[in-house]
Nucleic acid binder design. Structure first.
Lengths: 250, 250
DNA sequence: ACTCACCTCCTAATTTCTTAGGAGAGACCC
DNA sequence: GGGTCTCTCCTAAGAAATTAGGAGGTGAGT
């Protein structure tokens, strides 16, 4: 056997078992158990930016204490949380200490951290993930024990967590997003996609008709159908929506 | 000391030294040396999808034999290479064996692999990376030695490489892309971004003028300026370009 | 055989976008 | 002070997109 066996085995086991999981609850428990063995108490997996929906649905999978989760949503702490805010700027894992500097926080934020502290949510690591097509997710894990122990746990397992998170995301994101996007993602026909793609490339209706060797009115029909399916009031928004929903690529 | 020390140290060293590197050549040598110590011979880091440019510029950083790279571009092997094609479908590391199945390849592809073989590019691992905003990159590494040794090297170090690649990408992508996008990415003013954002949200010129409490003609001016800066012939393409260049978010 | 989704093409009125000018006011830098 | 950038507003003609209809043909599936 070689080096890094423990990590390899943890990841290997996780990936093996992952393939059989097909529902969110099992997935949650499974990740919780895996990181529990490494010394982590809770996790929150949060899809921050869902590609294709303007309004931000809260797509969250968490094992944080229920009471805290309730508070967090009721008080709209998303707007306050520096750990969450950092996910938009960073692309590599960061410990909470790095982004929650007392000298940079206002009173509300300090209160927020005090309250989190009551739930023993003090020392943690957050891992931003850039997903396929541009979606952004954040995995946050809370380490167990006192601060010294927690920091050690984090330092020791940050790479394992980083890898675990990527494999988890690969499985979980599609599950969460598919169910959320289902209602927003219509089926476009080949022609509808084509005319939208050319529109996104700056072509006029007439130019598109020349390119596709069909009548200008036919192109118009396809565009109108696509607009109706996408519930877009303008050609421009139809193209934007189709791009965000992964229906076309420019 | 705990578990996974070798991996942790490799990654740690890499990250530490990475911060001082500010040019592509040094970065290349640095990654080559690091993976060389793990038993890998060559690497190619390829930004497959550059967000913001319709035409695919070849953004490549490689230590493959120069002759092979020359052949690859001259013969337009990008269109043939199953390893590269797989990067569009996969989000996790894959060994070349998995995606280059003899029974699925046509004659051209088999010839391509024969030729690669002459350069000892046989056993490798490719790691797809989803970057910030939706760009896609691919890190391919070639293992040294005969097939048995190579497979062992790959299995042993796939996680290390996965992590190394992410840290490398985090540093290299901005360097490569920034220099490539420089010529394509204009500076838009606050108003220009606003009007494009509303256009992308399906608003008409008049609606946008109401929202921003300015005259309709002013909105038109801003749109026209943005179109000129983005060299977009239509409003729709201006919005699409601005999104891809990361200038606006819908 | 029938339905249904898809592709094709058409008219005509209305709205919106595009293009090509000009011009004044305020902010900032040299 | 002069130059540059940004934001603001304007006219006016022509091009393109939007809306609201209708209609015929093909192919796949029930």
């Amino acid at each position: 056997m070689g080096v890094s066996d423990y990590l390899s085995q943890t990841i290997g086991d996780y990936v093996d078992k992952l393939s059989g999981v097909d529902n969110q609850t099992t997935l949650e428990q499974f990740f919780a158990t895996t990181i529990g063995n490494l010394g982590f108490k809770y996790f929150t997996y949060h899809i921050v930016k869902v590609v294709g929906i303007g309004t931000h649905l809260p797509l969250v999978s968490t094992t944080y204490p229920k009471q805290w989760v309730k508070r967090y949503f009721e008080q709209n702490y998303m707007q306050l949380d520096p750990v969450l805010a950092a996910s938009f700027e960073r692309t590599l894992p960061y410990v909470w200490d790095e982004v929650a500097l007392p000298e940079e926080m206002d009173k509300h934020q300090k209160d927020f951290f005090m309250e989190a502290d009551d739930f023993k949510l003090r020392d943690g690591l957050s891992i931003p993930i850039n997903g396929y097509g541009g979606e952004v997710a954040l995995m946050s894990v809370v380490a167990d024990g006192n601060t010294k122990e927690a920091q050690e746990t984090i330092n020791q397992h940050r790479h394992t967590l980083h890898l675990l998170t990527m494999y988890h995301h690969n499985h979980a994101s599609s599950m969460l997003i598919d169910s959320a996007l289902k209602d927003y993602k219509p089926t476009l026909t080949k022609r509808e996609k084509e005319v939208l793609t050319w529109a996104g490339s700056g072509k006029t209706t007439w130019e598109t008709s020349e390119i596709l060797s069909i009548a200008e009115t036919t192109v118009l029909s396809h565009i109108e159908n696509a607009k109706r399916k996408l519930e877009a009031p303008s050609r421009t928004q139809a193209v934007v929506k189709a791009i965000y929903l992964g229906l076309i690529q420019i």
